[in-house]
């Protein structure tokens, strides 16, 4: 039963990883910006929700504030950090270092204002009950699965059925050509950042209700998002989401055999496995040598 318990826990975490990974993959796929500060949007959204909850805000208001902060952070990064670098034809490395710097600043600011160490909230959704002998499950498990599914389906429909969504797919393929169509690639980039960042908010809120947050939680989220993008296949949202789920399960199930501190290593073992044996990932195009 321990295995099933860990498996279900992994599915719950994996559903949240799937959301953050899909957000990262959406941003990277559409704009080709390696948004290393994606995890900071997660941290900020989680702590804003915590702040609202502990200050007796309505839970809907707290959630909306979390989404708004994540979106504002993502759009702000695109406008104030990435775009100026791109305007001056900065390299991939410049973008990486700038984003990494911002994420360190965010981590420290959160530590200063919200305090260091773990913080979590106890909601009715967080309380586990025994559903089968020795098998405990909280309502948040179902909420996480449902939210991830709804968000992913909504995102897929948006990208396939709306003009703005189709334009985002076009942006991923050829931003120069998009200009010949009379569309603004910079506005579409902003949309990609807004949507991709919004996807981390539900995951951050649900994490605050379960395992809790600390000021460095964004680093883990970021690494998992990057790993999921590679494992899923660069350019594939479906791949990133499935890979997020897979890594969540791997992190949890490995605890059957190993100590807790090896959980994160499991994700990276999966990543290395893919890099060695299937570098194009689950759904990515073949990688040129």
């Amino acid at each position: 039963m321990l295995f099933v318990q860990l498996l279900l826990g992994g599915v719950q975490n994996g559903a949240l990883y799937a959301l953050t990974a899909a957000g990262f993959a959406l941003i990277f796929g559409a704009t080709k910006v390696f948004h290393v500060a994606h995890g900071s949007a997660f941290t900020l959204a989680g702590y804003v929700f915590l702040y609202g909850w502990t200050h007796n805000w309505n839970s809907l208001l707290s959630s909306l504030a979390a989404v708004a902060v994540a979106v504002a952070f993502g759009v702000g990064m695109e406008r104030l950090v990435y775009r100026p670098i791109q305007r001056h034809e900065g390299s991939f490395f410049t973008v990486f270092v700038a984003a990494f710097g911002v994420s360190i600043v965010v981590q420290n600011l959160v530590g200063v204002f919200a305090g260091r160490g773990f913080a979590s909230i106890d909601t009715p959704l967080s309380n586990a009950s025994e559903v089968l002998p020795e098998l405990f499950l909280a309502d948040v498990f179902w909420v996480a699965i449902l939210v991830a599914l709804v968000m992913f389906v909504a995102l897929t429909l948006f990208l396939s059925r709306t003009n703005a969504g189709v334009a985002l797919r076009a942006l991923a393929q050829n931003p120069d050509l998009l200009r010949a169509y009379g569309l603004s690639s910079s506005r579409l980039s902003m949309l990609a950042f807004a949507l991709g960042s919004a996807l981390v908010a539900p995951a951050a809120i649900l994490t605050a209700m379960t395992t809790g947050l600390n000021e460095a939680v964004g680093n883990h989220v970021m690494l998992l998002s990057m790993a999921s993008t590679i494992v899923g296949g660069v350019g594939s949202l479906r791949g990133a989401a499935l890979a997020g789920l897979l890594l969540g399960v791997a992190e949890s199930v490995v605890l059957v055999f190993l100590e807790t501190q090896w959980a994160s290593a499991a994700s990276f073992l999966v990543l290395f496995g893919f890099i060695l044996f299937k570098p194009s990932g689950m759904f990515g195009a073949a990688v040129a040598k």
Binding site: A167, A170, Q173, L177, A180
Partner: peptide, 24 residues
């Protein structure tokens, strides 16, 4: 403008390309 090369997005269907043009 009909740009140089193939002015289409390879992963979009023809109807999606038309829809994008009309929307823009």
């Amino acid at each position: 403008l009909v740009p140089e090369g193939r002015g289409v997005f390879p992963d979009l269907t023809v109807l999606e390309i038309f829809g994008l043009a009309l929307w823009s």
